[in-house]
Simulated assay, not measured.
Amino acid sequence: MLKPIIIANWKLNGDKILVQKFIKKISFDYKKYFKKNTIILSPPIIYIEYMKKCMKNLKLSFAVQNVDYNYQGAFTGEISTYMVQEIGAKYVILGHSERRKNHFENNLLVAKKFYCTKINNLIPILCIGETKNEKKSGLTKSILKKQIDEIFLICGKNAFNNTLIAYEPIWAIGTGTNASPILINKILKFIKKYIIYKSDNTNIKFYMQYGGSVSTENIKDIICQKYVDGVLIGSGSLNYKNFLKMIQISSKN
């Protein structure tokens, strides 16, 4: 996997017109920037096939923003890993704070989804992070441990092999306030060492992301940190000019 890894999470945004314009612009910059990095696009799932159709010969990867741990049945509004595979997506964003908050997804549910994603040969992008109050109380590491431990409990010691982990402090998402580069590096170092310790395997392969108000102003200082393999960009990825600038900046590091 080429680094840096840039993930664009459109959340509940976009339409066919935006998709058309976005892909048309990517086609002009593809060889110079997009081909040299790992770019993962995550629009609402209903636009993925249309986006692929617009792409023609461009080779980019796709992530869905959620998945259910059931394969089929009376689960209104859900999508299965099989459906994800059918539309050609490779990655699944799991545990995003907005899912945890708005849909009451706890660590156990996220772990079940993680397990289902892994056994069906999809790659999880696991989001973990702490709230503002948890940070103020000095609970950041213990909160992260709990989120990670539930994955190990459900999925076993090799759970994080071939996985992306996005540290997204909840207090930074959509606020315009990002964690400092030094803090990001410190937390990602802790996460990496903890997963290696729990896996009992120094050769385990996984990638570390940062997400939370990533912008053209701060991405340079974030992406150059030792333990940062890439970034997860939210609303900043909807504006193509800004998104391209962030890719350009990342490519120089």
Rank of each mutant, 00 (worst) to 15 (best):
L2G: 09
K3T: 14
I7M: 10
I7L: 14
A8T: 04
A8E: 05
N13C: 01
G14K: 12
K16N: 09
I17D: 10
K21F: 09
K24V: 05
S27K: 14
F28Y: 15
D29H: 10
T38R: 12
I39T: 04
I40G: 02
P43E: 15
I45S: 08
I46L: 13
I46G: 01
Y47F: 15
Y50H: 06
M51I: 06
M55F: 14
K56A: 11
L58V: 03
K59Y: 14
L60F: 07
V64S: 07
V64R: 09
N66K: 14
Y69A: 07
Y71M: 15
G73I: 05
F75M: 03
G77T: 08
G77A: 08
S80E: 02
T81E: 07
M83Y: 03
Q85A: 03
G88L: 12
K90W: 13
L94N: 08
H96F: 11
H103E: 14
N106A: 05
N106T: 06
N107H: 13
L108C: 03
V110W: 14
V110M: 11
A111E: 04
K113T: 00
T117P: 00
K118N: 06
I119A: 05
I125W: 15
I125T: 08
I128E: 06
T131K: 12
T131V: 04
T131Y: 13
K132R: 11
N133H: 11
E134R: 05
E134G: 00
E134W: 11
L139H: 12
T140H: 08
K141G: 01
K141M: 06
L144P: 00
Q147E: 07
Q147V: 00
D149V: 13
E150A: 09
F152I: 07
F152Q: 08
L153V: 14
L153E: 15
L153A: 14
I154Y: 15
C155E: 11
G156E: 08
N158V: 07
N158T: 14
F160G: 01
F160V: 02
N161Y: 08
N161H: 09
N162S: 12
L164W: 13
L164N: 10
P169A: 08
W171D: 01
G174E: 08
G176H: 05
N178F: 15
A179H: 04
S180I: 03
P181I: 02
I182C: 04
L183E: 08
K186R: 10
L188Y: 13
L188F: 15
F190V: 03
K192Q: 08
K193I: 06
I195K: 12
Y197P: 00
K198L: 11
S199H: 09
D200E: 15
T202M: 13
I204M: 05
K205W: 07
F206V: 01
F206I: 02
Q209Y: 15
Y210G: 01
V214C: 00
T216C: 10
N218D: 04
K220N: 11
K220Y: 15
Y227Q: 12
V231A: 05
L232F: 07
G234T: 03
S237Q: 02
L238Y: 03
Y240Q: 02
Y240N: 00
F243A: 09
K245C: 07
M246I: 13
I249P: 00
S250D: 01
S250G: 05
K252I: 06
K252Y: 10
